[in-house]
Design a protein around this nucleic acid. Structure first.
Length: 544
DNA sequence: ATAAGCACGC
DNA sequence: GACGTACGTGCTTATA
């Protein structure tokens, strides 16, 4: 009770600690082993200390070994070493009362730190002994070098036009208020439009609207976009609620949040790219998530105007892979029609449309192309007739006909999918071009049809999505090296799964564009061309 | 704090 | 008869 408020006792400062260790951290001739090196690199860099010569990272190694688990130090120590490590919260407390290590006597934290270090060393040994040659290769050729690239990208951050967002916010506020007024008028009462529960009660009880399809969830009425869209045909209020939801989503998730996250130090927003989260090998982005900035709707797309270069002497350059997963499907299946379509640079959805509708390429209508696009898209995910019927608003029977026709057209794709499933069932995993594995446990043999078929679809998708992830990671490593060597003033700032965003000074934009395409094409590793689309402009929207 | 419902991206 | 596209993050509300 004696250390209630005001004066926190500080036993030592982070600076003191880091300065003692700085000569070691920075010495290139002293190899280091870490758990989550990127986090430590940020911590040290914030105190002007580099972390050089990281030769192993137990978090990355565990992710490579099996992406489906959590990769925390404590979990790993328990499962591989049978160590039950002290939780940080036992030492520091949690919530508001949480202390920093500086507020504890050194000898109290000493045990904790030495235990950590000891566990990391033991785990590194464990992993090095257990990683296969292919996994070691994935580790040293891709994941470990990528850590450094991601670190630099996170530190670069991205410049945000806060003035623009403020105006946008005020503007959208007026529209939201307006919608609100109209909705309340039709409803004949006021309620919280942000509450699905209240929306359901108003629509289905007070107003007695009838939905044709299902409109129930576990807990009550469903007011999902799917349900509201169907209602919107007949009822104005459903349309208004949809619009309200959309505007509110855009405002509360992006417009009002991004400006708050601008760092006072450099006026830029710094995301975290998580390297060990997804089961397929993709990155994820958080705090904020800059991989889900709106793109589909006009209003959402305008958020991208807020992503700008630091000054007018630079541009935002965006480069993305064209149809990378379908190209990988062509590569893996070696299907002659799909492969030749890519080699001849055909419009792939139109080609598919011509085949499944039995018409000539030039007779393909927009609607046929739209349907074929949905089929192509669905194939990558092992989509069922039900999913496709939903996507196209057709019956499952009709959807099945499309799928049958598709496999008739592309028999080698059917074959590839069957082979992949069989491999997964026999081996319990599937893998990417670079040996990244995804395991399935017992799911592929589950007596539960849902679990079983879900796992089968994942087995089909994982090599495609995962290989695409491998490829862009390699491209990022190459590009980063090229930029650091030749174009120091250009900054890689974002990755969105098949797209890279770079901030480039005007005078070198042509050179950097060329380097980017070259880096992403990767000397054409597939039996179909890997094609990169590139554009630049004064903001992210213009770069698309 | 946590769960549920919903919606944004690829 | 219900359930039927992969992978994520994060908002708000409601409940505890």
């Amino acid at each position: 009770m004696e250390e209630q408020v005001s004066e926190k006792k500080v036993y030592f400062t982070v600076e003191e600690l880091i300065n003692i260790l700085k000569p070691i951290f920075e010495d290139e001739n002293i190899a280091k082993i870490s758990h989550n090196a990127k986090f430590l690199m940020h911590l040290l860099k914030n105190h002007n200390c580099e972390l050089n010569s990281i030769i192993f990272d137990t978090m990355l190694a565990d992710y490579i070994k099996d992406s489906s688990f959590k990769h925390g130090l404590k979990q790993q120590a328990l499962s591989y070493l049978q160590y039950d490590m002290q939780d940080a919260s036992e030492l520091l407390g949690k919530g508001k009362m949480m202390k920093t290590v500086c507020e504890l006597p050194l000898h109290d934290v000493f045990d904790y730190f030495t235990n950590d270090a000891f566990a990391i060393l033991k785990l590194a040994k464990y992993h090095i002994e257990n990683l296969t040659e292919k996994e070691i290769n994935l580790f040293y050729e891709i994941e470990l070098p990528l850590t450094k690239v991601l670190f630099e990208m996170e530190r670069n951050g991205v410049s945000i036009d806060t003035k623009y967002l403020k105006e946008f916010s005020d503007n959208i506020d007026i529209q939201i208020k307006d919608l609100e007024k109209n909705i309340f008028e039709i409803a004949g009462c006021e309620f919280n439009i942000n509450s699905p529960k209240q929306v359901g009660e108003v629509l289905f009880e007070k107003l007695g609207l009838k939905s044709k399809g299902k409109n129930k969830t576990k807990t009550g009425y469903s007011t999902s976009a799917e349900v509201l869209e169907e209602l919107a045909v007949e009822y104005e209020i459903a349309k208004l609620i949809l619009e309200h939801r959309h505007l509110n989503k855009i405002k509360s998730t992006y417009i009002d949040v991004l400006p708050e996250l601008v760092s006072t130090k450099d006026k830029r927003v710094h995301t975290t790219f998580n390297q060990t989260i997804t089961t397929t090998g993709r990155l994820s982005s958080s705090n904020p998530n800059l991989q889900n900035i709106p793109a589909r709707t006009e209003i959402g797309n305008n958020i991208r105007k807020a992503f700008i270069p630091e000054n007018e002497n630079s541009v935002i350059l965006a480069a993305d892979y064209s149809q990378i997963e379908l190209r990988l499907l062509a590569h893996y299946s070696d299907d002659p029609i799909l492969t030749s379509a890519f080699i001849n640079n055909e419009d792939i959805h139109a080609t598919t449309a011509a085949k499944i509708f039995n018409v000539k390429q030039e007779e393909v209508t927009k609607d046929m192309r739209r349907k074929a696009k949905a089929v192509n898209f669905g194939i990558i995910y092992g989509q069922t007739r039900y999913g496709l019927s939903e996507a196209l608003s057709i019956t499952p029977q009709e959807a099945q006909e499309f799928i049958d026709k598709y496999f008739e057209t592309y028999p080698k794709i059917k074959e590839y999918m069957e082979t992949t499933k069989l491999f997964a069932i026999q081996n319990g995993y599937v893998e990417t071009l670079y040996g990244r594995k995804r395991y399935f446990g017992n799911e592929l043999n589950s007596s539960n049809k849902n679990i079983r078929e879900f796992a089968q679809r994942a087995a089909i998708n994982a090599p495609l999505q995962g290989t695409a992830a491998d490829l862009i990671k390699i491209a990022m490593i190459n590009l980063n090296k090229g930029l650091n060597d030749k174009f120091k003033s250009a900054k890689m700032i974002l990755q969105v799964h098949d797209e890279l965003i770079i901030e480039v000074p005007n005078d070198i934009v042509k050179d950097v564009a060329e380097l980017t395409i070259k880096s992403m094409e990767l000397s054409q590793p597939l039996n179909v061309p890997l094609v990169v689309d590139l554009n630049y402009g004064k903001n992210w929207k213009e770069a698309k």
